[in-house]
Simulated assay, not measured.
Amino acid sequence: MAGAFGQSTGDVFNPLQRPAKGRKELTVDVDGTEVYSWQEPSAKAPETHVLVRGSPTRFGDLVGPAVPAILVKQQPSFPAPSDKTTQRRLGLARWMASEQNPLTARVMVNRVWQQHFGQGLVSTANDFGLMGAAPENPELLDWLAHWFMHDAGWSLKKLHRLILTSRAWQMSKTPESLMRYRRLEVEAIRDSMLAVSGRLNPKRFGPAMKPGIPQAALEANTDKDKIWKASDEIEASRRSIYAFIKRGLVVPMFETLDLADTVSSCPQRQVTTVAPQALSLFNGEFVNQQAGHFAARLLALCREPTAKEMEKMRVFLQEQPLEQACRVILNLNEFVYPE
């Protein structure tokens, strides 16, 4: 959960009392999928003390489970241990989603608002503390958070519907509306190209697919022995959310079009406009491959072309093959900038 937990006062730091030392185990789900899960070996947690001046060797007062005092007027109650677990994680989870902690709802509705409008009501989406930015419209933020908890029952689907059917969202892009043009994230651009080309593989779940890496990018990599073998075209045509990402070797198209930081928390995508993006979208191997598939379908913008567009396309097709015309369409602003 994004948010500020305040700074320690004085010489002590009061942490949540840690649970009993757990272990990570490989388990098999009902559908045969292997997953790692955290197991607690005992319902008895070790003692936790205040650490004087943060020193791990200087124990202060014995403390029980609690949440940061800056966030509450009264500490929530934690469930008693069961026969297998301390249940402290359950207690913390219940408090995080309770009416006594509106911060969770505020952060969530702010992230959804940011997703649709490009910037949240709080511009520092990862910091709701004293050092973060003040809400642009605090009354709206509080109203949305209250509605999300009580009327929507924490349903993100209902929250999306509320925003997308609001007058604020449906206003046209004029200087008066202050609505900013936003480019789609690279994953959405790639998925949209696969969708209009008819090659999008709707397969869900399972292991990640391995997207292809251009040979030039592979030559520049210093760890060639650990470069993955690319999936076949059908498997590699799954949604980008299933793409295998390696911090030391990011797919060039993803990196050029501002993939989220793979090292630290990324509250908002950086959006740049640089020449390599145009080269990647016009000359890249993936784009040209999808343009070839697209040429057999010709469906991209969900609207009929204007008479002027049709005339320009006829002139273009007199000199260039249909595949090149499709490549041009995939590079239109209308394709990568949602209305």
Rank of each mutant, 00 (worst) to 15 (best):
D261K: 03
Q75E: 13
L51I: 04
F254D: 06
W147K: 02
R297Y: 02
K203G: 00
S37K: 06
F78M: 03
A188Q: 13
F316A: 03
I234Y: 08
V287S: 02
K157Q: 14
G153N: 11
A45G: 00
R53S: 09
H293I: 05
G64E: 13
L121K: 00
N101H: 14
T272M: 00
R18K: 12
L178F: 10
A217G: 12
Q87F: 04
M149N: 06
I329C: 00
R204Q: 12
P267I: 01
A134P: 03
S37H: 04
T57M: 07
G22I: 03
A105R: 06
H49W: 10
K312L: 14
I163W: 01
P56E: 07
L178T: 09
A307H: 06
K226N: 15
V250I: 15
A325L: 03
S77H: 05
P76R: 13
T262F: 06
Q268C: 02
V315Y: 05
S280Q: 15
M131K: 10
I70C: 10
E339S: 08
T273D: 14
T262G: 12
L322D: 00
E309R: 02
N288D: 04
A307E: 13
V186I: 02
M193D: 04
P81N: 03
Y337K: 05
E40A: 11
R58L: 09
D225H: 05
F282Y: 13
G118R: 01
Q75P: 03
P79I: 03
S82K: 02
G198M: 12
S237A: 14
P214A: 14
V12I: 11
R199H: 13
P207H: 12
Q75C: 09
A217H: 14
E311H: 09
L62V: 06
S37Q: 11
G212S: 10
V50A: 07
L200H: 05
I227V: 15
Q74H: 15
P81D: 00
N221M: 01
V328L: 15
E323G: 02
F148P: 00
T86Q: 05
T104Y: 12
L249Q: 12
K229M: 04
W143Y: 06
K24N: 11
L62R: 08
K157N: 10
H293Q: 15
F78I: 07
P15C: 02
D83Q: 15
R180D: 03
G248V: 04
P41Q: 04
D232E: 08
M313R: 15
A296T: 02
L51G: 07
L51T: 11
S265Q: 07
R247M: 14
G64F: 04
E235I: 05
L159S: 09
